[in-house]
Computed example of a mutant assay.
Amino acid sequence: MKNFALIGAAGYIAPRHMKAIKETGNTLIAALDKYDGIGIMDSHFPQAHFFTEFERFDRFIDKWHREHDKRIEYIAITTPNYLHDSHIRFALKSGAHAICEKPLVLNPHNLDQLKVIEEETGKKVYNILQLRLHDSIIALKNKIAAELEADPTRIYDIDLTYLTSRGRWYFVSWKGDEAKSGGIASNIGVHFFDMLSWIFGPVEENVVHLKQPDANAGYMKLKNARVRWFLSVNYDYIPETVKASGKTTYRSITVNGEEFEFSEGFTDLHTTSYRHILQGGGFGLEEARNSINIVSTIRNLPALGLEGEYHPFCRKVLG
């Protein structure tokens, strides 16, 4: 049994981490969040110590190590994106491995600094990149790898479309602040960009066509793929047929015009991710680098509008 702590216990994704800690046979020693309405902990670890102030949490972690002559071996981090870097540093310097939600950090240079701290402390940073553990995506990667082995010059045409409706609260929260979330591409797109670059190779060209608070779109040339992408949190842009079915989310990836279906199998991927880490696997700093480079570049590129290889949904926004 391993000992865990959790920073960001009241967040949307935190219950999946609590469930993963429990289902892998481990225990949560302490949790931190400035918001204290987290009865969800009663379903997982009612005996865990809880703190609303970082200073008291810090003191507890240090004191617990000394009094129990054992360590909290992993600290899970589910805080707002802009705080990940700081909380990862805390975990490593506290003698724990860090398991952090995506995006791991907002900028590539943060990865370089964390690598130095890894070397200093002997502890590891793990990023939750659960799409890499999805059965359908693994099958797609294997299929593409076999085809590229037969023809290394092959280029695939891909359309990535992801819309997940969010209310007005989104733009008032940290998620609507680009300095804190990294913007739409970082907040809801980073795991898709990771998955695509994992399968089709690194980015050779990156173009942004649309950049608005509620929608981003662009074009990427990967080593073996041309990708048109559209990401949004605006319900208005969801196709009418999807709205008619009562759904508020639309996810589509087409490869050479054929729909790639991966809507099922998401339920237990955090537990699968934890099991993967605890068995000696996991995805570290270098695995995260491609996707962090992509979203950081997108954040700093100008939007070109309806020019070149833009995603068809751009016309929903720009007319």
Rank of each mutant, 00 (worst) to 15 (best):
H84T: 03
D85G: 05
S86F: 06
H87G: 00
H87K: 12
I88N: 03
I88L: 10
R89G: 04
A91S: 14
A91F: 06
L92C: 13
K93S: 11
K93V: 00
G95A: 06
I99M: 15
C100M: 08
K102C: 02
P103W: 02
P103C: 07
P103I: 03
P103M: 05
L104I: 11
L104F: 03
V105R: 05
N107Y: 13
P108N: 13
H109I: 03
L111F: 10
L111I: 12
Q113L: 12
Q113C: 01
Q113S: 14
Q113E: 15
L114M: 10
L114R: 07
K115G: 07
V116W: 01
V116A: 13
V116Q: 07
V116N: 07
V116Y: 04
V116I: 15
V116D: 06
I117P: 04
E118V: 02
E118H: 14
E118G: 05
E119H: 06
E119G: 06
E120D: 14
E120F: 09
T121D: 12
T121Q: 11
G122N: 11
G122I: 08
K124V: 02
K124W: 08
V125Q: 08
V125H: 10
V125S: 04
V125D: 11
Q130K: 09
L131G: 04
R132S: 05
L133D: 04
L133N: 06
L133M: 01
H134A: 03
S136R: 08
I137W: 09
I138A: 06
I138G: 01
K141L: 00
N142Y: 10
N142S: 14
N142C: 00
N142E: 15
K143C: 01
A145N: 10
A145D: 15
L148D: 08
L148E: 01
E149Q: 15
D151P: 00
T153Q: 15
T153N: 14
R154A: 00
I155K: 10
I155Y: 01
I155F: 06
Y156P: 05
Y156D: 01
I158L: 02
I158D: 08
D159K: 15
L160D: 14
L160S: 13
Y162P: 00
Y162E: 04
Y162T: 01
Y162Q: 08
L163F: 07
T164F: 07
S165R: 13
S165C: 04
S165Y: 09
R166D: 06
R166A: 03
R166C: 01
R166H: 02
G167R: 04
G167T: 06
W169T: 11
Y170S: 01
Y170P: 02
F171D: 03
V172Y: 13
V172E: 14
V172C: 05
K175D: 07
G176T: 08
K180F: 00
S181Y: 05
G182S: 12
G183W: 11
G183S: 07
G183C: 06
I184F: 03
I184L: 02
N187W: 09
I188F: 04
I188E: 10
G189Q: 13
V190A: 09
V190S: 09
V190D: 09
F192T: 07
F192G: 04
L196F: 12
S197N: 14
S197Y: 12
S197M: 12
W198T: 02
I199T: 03
F200V: 05
F200L: 10
G201T: 09
